[in-house]
Simulated scan of single mutants.
Amino acid sequence: AGGVFAGLAIAAGAAGLALQNRLLARRLTLTHQHRLHFDLLSKAIDDPELAAVLDTFEEEVPPVKQRQFLYANALYSNVLHAYRTGSTSESEIGGHLHVICRSPIFREYWEFTRRHRAVLQEGSQEARLGRRVDEIVQNISQLR
């Protein structure tokens, strides 16, 4: 019986290690993808000709405002990355969101990109975080 329990303990330990390895691999993949996204945004912020590629707004957005929106996207993407990887606690995420949502430019960006978020898969992490930002923006707007 002792050998059976030892075998089960080893199997459980191996399964736990495999799960940890999968989680670590996912975090590394998300971090790599986030870095690529940030690099692309940085290039677009620095070069209006590249920023034009990311202009998916239904209204005309002046170049200065477009650069601000790209930066707002970079800020939001950074919080989203922390949320996805679990590198920041839920309360810290909320604090970061409250800070960036205080910016009128961020709130304008958020409104301009509402239709972009409408196509997100309902239960996805990004959709959940987006709804949280919606609530914060709504609360801040009601206070003003």
Results as ranks from 00 to 15, higher is better:
A1M: 15
A1H: 10
A1K: 09
G2V: 07
G3A: 07
V4F: 15
F5M: 10
F5N: 11
A6S: 08
G7V: 07
L8I: 15
A12S: 09
A14C: 06
G16R: 12
L19Q: 05
Q20S: 06
Q20V: 12
N21D: 07
R22S: 06
R22M: 13
L23P: 02
L24D: 03
A25H: 06
A25M: 02
A25R: 11
L28N: 12
T29L: 14
L30I: 06
T31E: 13
H32W: 12
H32K: 03
Q33E: 12
Q33L: 14
H34A: 15
R35M: 12
H37D: 11
H37C: 09
F38W: 12
D39K: 10
D39N: 11
D39S: 14
L40P: 00
K43Y: 06
I45G: 04
D47C: 04
D47G: 05
P48G: 03
E49A: 14
L50I: 15
A52W: 03
D55Q: 13
T56E: 02
T56V: 08
F57N: 01
E58K: 09
E59K: 10
P63F: 10
R67S: 15
F69K: 03
F69G: 03
L70E: 02
L75N: 09
Y76Q: 06
N78C: 13
A82F: 10
Y83G: 02
R84F: 02
T85S: 11
G86A: 05
T88F: 12
T88L: 15
S89Y: 06
S89G: 08
E90D: 11
E90Y: 11
E92L: 13
E92G: 04
I93C: 03
G94P: 00
L97W: 00
I100N: 08
R102C: 07
S103R: 12
I105A: 09
F106W: 05
F106S: 01
Y109E: 05
W110Q: 02
E111T: 15
E111Q: 15
F112E: 09
F112D: 02
T113H: 03
R114I: 07
R114C: 05
R114H: 10
R114F: 11
R115Y: 10
R115E: 09
R115D: 07
H116R: 07
A118Q: 08
V119L: 09
V119S: 08
L120P: 02
G123E: 08
S124N: 00
S124Q: 01
E126H: 05
A127M: 07
A127E: 08
L129Q: 04
G130N: 00
R132N: 09
R132T: 13
D134S: 07
D134Q: 04
E135F: 13
I136R: 04
I136S: 02
N139G: 07
N139A: 15
I140V: 13
I140M: 10
Q142L: 14
L143T: 15
R144G: 14
